[in-house]
Design a binder for these strands. Structure first.
Lengths: 227, 227
DNA sequence: CGGGTTGTGGTCGTATTGGTCTCAACCTGA
DNA sequence: TCAGGTTGAGACCAATACGACCACAACCCG
């Protein structure tokens, strides 16, 4: 059983993630924190016997960032693994977190399927690390690290390509609310195709639809990012 | 140009690694240390302007281990990447180093070809991290991490020859973004084969995929070195 | 104030083009 | 010669553009 510590400043998010974790076999939540300082103490002071294996760490908290937490923990040689779970997508933050050894970096919001995949992947890494208790060969080490390699995520509906979805997602994130036509011209694709992807994102809850009135003619629906 | 610090207690090894680094384009050795304490000072005290990008870190040194070095560095928020280069293959050490955010773990001894591959892989990660200066999408972050983690096997997948891979790599490097068909005709090979190699390069993070719209019909994916 | 007109975007069917898979032919090394 | 691996050709599948038609809100005119 893998013991998990949840860290997030929002109680609602905490609860959601708890239910997520409990739906995955072999993982259990042993503690929760809403602040950076509390997280550091929880990780460092917990007796090793009932130690924490994995921390799901948010970035933004009132009394410090996830980066601060991780720096303290790493300095103390605490032997925990960390999955960053945050809405912060700044490339520099990602780089620093990777430098501090996060096993995965999950961008909120995400579906349960994505969450479960990441946890399963972490479990695979963990199993490999455990079974090779003695000296390992280079290729065993590679296999271990390779297990942490993010895999292509959930299967898309027919007619959608991962690459295009990625581009559309980026456009909506970058430019604020967009209509299908605007997204299409920004990406150099057709309005119909752009709309398909935006609809998919809306269906999976990653963007919100809202009608845009005022101009003559049928109202245009615009798609805005939903953090 | 990526600035490298070499850390190893053995002068001979240091020299060997220096020649290795200098044989790889775009990397240069800016400093060398033979001890743990010296390594920590070198990393922390060097002015940011001529900062160190990458540390090749040995594990066993007279005045401390590589783990100690890394813990100090991480606690100080130094923004350097690290490749562990050591003979130590203990699974627990590997796990701890991974937890401290090493980009690669190289077991001594190794050939120059292996060494170069790892450096190239690190470069791919670095480029991806740099090009996405703003907010990134989940899949961009995944691509970044995917570039970092070693592919399960060091050798190429069945069906790919090193020679052809070199030619395809050269074509993409030289001619900017290419579609599979364009690469095929430029190299005088079949579209299917060209695509196989381009896909491999994309999977290992050395080239980026992006769909090309505008014409009726299914969009063509183009493969670019690092736009 | 109300119904028709107009203009715009949503929706669907079809054509088109590249991606993807399978299997046979070829090449290389022992 | 044989075995394994690499390439290539064709068939099928998938993702997009385009155009026609439908739905909706604003506007206009009585």
């Amino acid at each position: 059983m893998i013991s998990v510590l949840l860290v997030d400043d929002d109680a609602l998010t905490l609860e959601l993630h708890r239910t997520y974790v409990e739906r995955v076999d072999g993982f259990r939540v042993v503690a929760e924190c809403t602040g950076a300082r509390a997280a550091v103490s929880a990780i460092l002071e917990r007796p090793p016997a009932e130690g924490i294996d994995l921390v799901l760490l948010d970035m933004t908290m009132p009394d410090g960032t996830g980066l601060d937490v991780l720096r303290h923990v790493r300095a103390r040689a605490a032997d925990v693994d960390v999955i960053a779970v945050t809405g912060v997508r700044d490339a520099d933050v990602v780089r620093q977190m990777v430098g501090l050894g996060v096993a995965q970096y999950l961008v909120k919001p995400f579906s349960f399927a994505v969450f479960r995949d990441r946890l399963e992947q972490y479990r695979a890494y963990r199993e490999r690390a455990r079974e090779a208790t003695g000296p390992a060969t280079q290729s065993e080490i590679d296999a271990m690290l390779g297990a942490l390699r993010p895999t292509a995520s959930v299967a898309l509906p027919k007619g959608l390509s991962p690459d295009t979805l990625d581009r559309v997602t980026g456009a909506v994130r970058g430019s604020g609310p967009l209509s299908a036509a605007e997204a299409a011209s920004a990406l150099g694709m057709s309005r119909v195709a752009a709309r398909r992807y935006l609809e998919h994102l809306a269906d999976t809850g990653q963007v919100v639809r809202s009608p845009r009135y005022g101009t003559p003619g049928r109202p245009e629906t615009e798609y805005g990012w939903h953090p």
